[in-house]
Amino acid sequence: MVSWEKVCSPKEEGGLGIKDSQSWNIAAIGKLVWWIYYSPNRLWVKWVNQIYLKGADWQEYQPSGNMSWGWKSICRVKDRLASGYQNGQWLIDNKGYTMCSGYELVRHSFQSVQWHQYVWNGWCLPRHQFIGWLIAREDLQLKVKLFALGIAAHEDCLLCGSAPETHVHLFQECTYGRRVFSEIGKMCSLSVPTSNHLHWAGNGHGSQLKKGILLCIVMATYYHIWMQRNKARVEGCILRPELISNQIRREVKAGLQHVFYQR
């Protein structure tokens, strides 16, 4: 499983680019904090000054215990955004406070990742992209993880049974996975490496069209290896690699036709 904080981080940081509703709500309330600083002529701000602030310094102000829940929430947001202010000036954006800049301050940040440009390339099918995202994050529920949790009886690979089922093994070292990539290489008349498939597909192949097609093929291959792993777990059988390569060819062809039709 992927934590909600990681899911709500930008794609450049390994997330899905979904807005964190709680942080976005804080950023929206931050607009009211900004109005109290810089919009004294607003009717609502005049009312706040008359009822609550009564001439007090807004930056140092703290509400008393008998005040309304809504006003206390605004004051809590003011404290949450305090690091973005200095002498009433918003430090993050010279133009002043915006919800986007407030959101960037309160959300949880992660280190940038290099693989996002390959996973979210705009050519692949969404289901391939999602599984590729989990693979790049190494967050699939593989046997090593399940065995450590006491769920699985063993940690051996379900496709070859020769080593513990990790992300590196399943998509780079497993004999079944290598046979699938070998069939893909024959289909493309290319020598496919045994590791770093996404980096290989996204670099050094000339035109953007060829890179896009190769990324589609690699992502589809990842997806189908994962599906065969699940098929082995549920049904106890898997398809031959040459049949998988035919499925990949059909799916990539249909996906690219859809992309070109939309353009």
Rank of each mutant, 00 (worst) to 15 (best):
V106C: 00
H116I: 04
D93L: 03
I135L: 13
W120E: 02
Y97H: 03
I74F: 03
R127T: 12
W71I: 05
S109M: 09
N87S: 06
L134P: 00
L91I: 10
Q117S: 10
S73D: 12
K72D: 04
G70F: 13
D79K: 15
G70L: 12
K143S: 10
Y118D: 07
I92Y: 07
F130N: 02
C124D: 03
C100S: 15
S109Y: 13
L146I: 06
Y85I: 01
W133L: 00
K143T: 03
W115K: 09
C75K: 00
Q111P: 07
W90V: 01
H108M: 13
S109L: 13
N94I: 06
N94S: 12
W120Q: 07
Q117V: 14
D139M: 15
V113A: 05
K78Q: 06
W120I: 00
L140P: 00
G132M: 01
I135R: 00
F147D: 03
D139E: 15
G102A: 05
S101F: 06
W120F: 14
K95F: 09
E138H: 08
S68K: 07
L142W: 01
R137S: 00
G96D: 03
V144K: 01
G96E: 01
L125D: 14
W90S: 00
D79I: 12
C100T: 14
H128W: 05
Q89F: 08
A148V: 07
S68P: 06
G84W: 01
D139T: 14
Q141Y: 12
G132A: 09
H128Q: 13
F110M: 07
T98P: 02
K145M: 10
S68C: 03
G84D: 00
I131K: 07
S109K: 15
C75F: 06
G84H: 01
I92M: 11
L91T: 02
M67V: 10
K95C: 11
I74Q: 03
C100G: 15
A136E: 11
L146K: 02
K78A: 02
S83W: 04
